[in-house]
Computed example of a mutant assay.
Amino acid sequence: CKPWEWCKPHFDEAAKQNLDIITQTQYVDMVSYMPFDICLKADKMSMSQSLELRVPFLDKKVLDVALQLPTACRVDDDHAKYALRVAASKLGFQKKVANMPKQPFITPLTVWLQTDLYYDRIKEAFTSEAAHEFFNVDYLVQMLDDHKSADFSTVEGRGKLKMMRIWNIYCFLCWYEVFFGASSEQLKPKTQVA
């Protein structure tokens, strides 16, 4: 199923409600993207660490108020979360904080992979027995070296950005080590299940 095919029934349902396009889009986000992507990931990540996660803007009372706001109070030409930004300003937050652009929660892997700590750890994995079994090790090390030495403030440096490729290969090698490498013996269950 293609993404637009999966979303179409939600947009069709929103269109039946005679809502403006912004509210339709927000509705589709609330019934598709949020529960089946963002909230699902947050729930899985927090529960895997035995953490109870609360998302303040998904509190029922907050949501009830937000759903009653006219579209012009939710979004303006410059900002999403317009009412929240106005409220923050009136509560005394500095203007630069209240009007700060939305930012994702990203891990600074691009920078971390340039530090000796992460570089050395990943290079060890990239030259391991498993890496030799599955990959061209010379290519992996060259890619890692290029990333470590790149100046990302230049176009040429950004061309050497291979963080996602490096990280995906490293995660595979860690997974392989846990389940099939020397660590698998140490980590296997101590009891037999009949």
Rank of each mutant, 00 (worst) to 15 (best):
K162M: 10
W167A: 09
A125C: 10
M164S: 14
W175E: 04
K148M: 03
E177G: 03
T154A: 09
D120T: 04
E124T: 09
D138E: 09
S153E: 12
N168H: 15
V178Q: 12
Q114E: 12
A150M: 08
A150C: 07
E177I: 03
Y176C: 05
V111A: 11
K123H: 15
E133L: 06
M163I: 06
V141C: 04
Y170D: 11
A131Q: 08
N168Y: 14
I169G: 03
E129V: 10
R121I: 03
Y118K: 01
C171D: 12
Q142L: 12
R165G: 10
W175Y: 14
R121A: 06
E133D: 04
W167Y: 15
S153C: 02
F126C: 01
R165A: 12
F152I: 04
D146K: 01
A125D: 13
Y139A: 12
I166S: 08
P108Y: 13
D146L: 04
F134M: 05
T154Y: 14
N168F: 12
I122F: 14
S153D: 13
V155S: 03
Y176G: 01
R158M: 11
A150V: 03
L140T: 04
W175C: 05
D120C: 00
F135I: 01
T127D: 10
L161N: 15
D138T: 05
V141G: 02
T115Y: 11
L140Q: 04
W175D: 10
A130K: 01
D138L: 01
A125Q: 15
F172C: 02
T127L: 05
K148Y: 13
D120I: 00
V155M: 03
D151C: 02
T115K: 08
T127W: 14
E133S: 06
E124N: 12
W175K: 01
I122R: 08
I122K: 08
Q142F: 11
D151S: 03
